[in-house]
Design a protein around this nucleic acid. Structure first.
Lengths: 160, 160
DNA sequence: ATTTTATGTCAGCCATGTTGACTTATATGC
DNA sequence: GCATATAAGTCAACATGGCTGACATAAAAT
């Protein structure tokens, strides 16, 4: 009983640390997306559009099925935002040569502009957090988040 | 130009590291919430209900205004889920003695049961990630996420 | 020739956010 | 004590982004 004041109570601390870890993730995710959400709104887009733009930018030539696997949403949900991005000339969808059923997605110039604008915000935010936290912290951040991520998707980060 | 192969190109690596950091956050958040979402669905609840239950559990006696400040949603949005939780006897709302305009929120026994069920899932998930990553990593995780969080809310974590 | 796969589309539903307008009860300040 | 401010709740309407189910088309694979 005196443990709480006189010395470390591993169980108590541990549980408290876990609750803190959950909240950190909640607040960080909320604040990470806030500024980009505001920019997207001026284009008539939402967070869903950003995800599509982001993953197409990072994986030029990605197919619709591959994109669906990353986002884990239904094709009907994707279709709504992807269709809008294609119609408004942010994303280009061209037929694959090898398998002409597949549509390969890439950003148009306009899409790249928007992607850059959004990425700049995110890069700045994260770069500041990294700088303040220091290099070893960045590795810790990486390790813990990797542990939270589903094994299937963990492979995406295999390199490090 | 040879930099990319022959040695570290700090700029390239840095940018790549930042992109990785963004994706880690995206995938981790998605996977962190997935299992609880499934449990909540069996109660007819969603992620919004979980947030309310969580913050009321962690802050028993919290007022509606304080809860709104944490969640950063409108009172109309909160009202929908909070009202449901009160009606279905997961949360109790009692008048404050000092200021009778205020409603102080706390979990009922039933609410605590659900909260425990959800927390157990999250604690297990995070505990495993912490264990795999190691103690120093946990501190790094904490530092980086703190840096991402809005200064206003960073104060919530002031203790450490 | 048949079946499977990749994609697209229509229609409707649900959860959860938003704005705006308004009410009620209570506290606070002049 | 009266006027104003604050805490909370409510009604209505709307947007976003998930979901399911059903179905169509083109092309690849068997």
């Amino acid at each position: 009983m005196a443990d709480i004041k006189s010395g470390p109570n591993p169980l108590f601390l541990r549980e408290d640390q876990l609750y803190e870890g959950m909240e950190l993730l909640f607040f960080a995710y909320r604040d990470f997306t806030a500024e980009c959400d505001a920019i997207l709104a001026t284009y008539g887009f939402g967070r869903a559009h950003h995800r599509v733009i982001y993953f197409v930018a990072r994986n030029p030539g990605i197919s619709v099925a591959e994109l669906l696997a990353i986002l884990r949403i239904t094709k009907q949900s994707l279709s709504r935002v992807l269709g809008q991005l294609v119609r408004e000339n942010y994303i280009e969808s061209r037929q694959s040569g090898k398998d002409r059923r597949r549509r390969l997605l890439s950003l148009t110039d306009q899409g790249q502009e928007l992607e850059q604008r959004l990425s700049t915000v995110h890069r700045a935010l994260l770069a500041r957090a990294y700088r303040e936290a220091g290099a070893e912290s960045v590795d810790g951040y990486r390790q813990v988040l990797l542990g939270i991520i589903d094994e299937t998707d963990r492979k995406r980060f295999a390199k490090g």
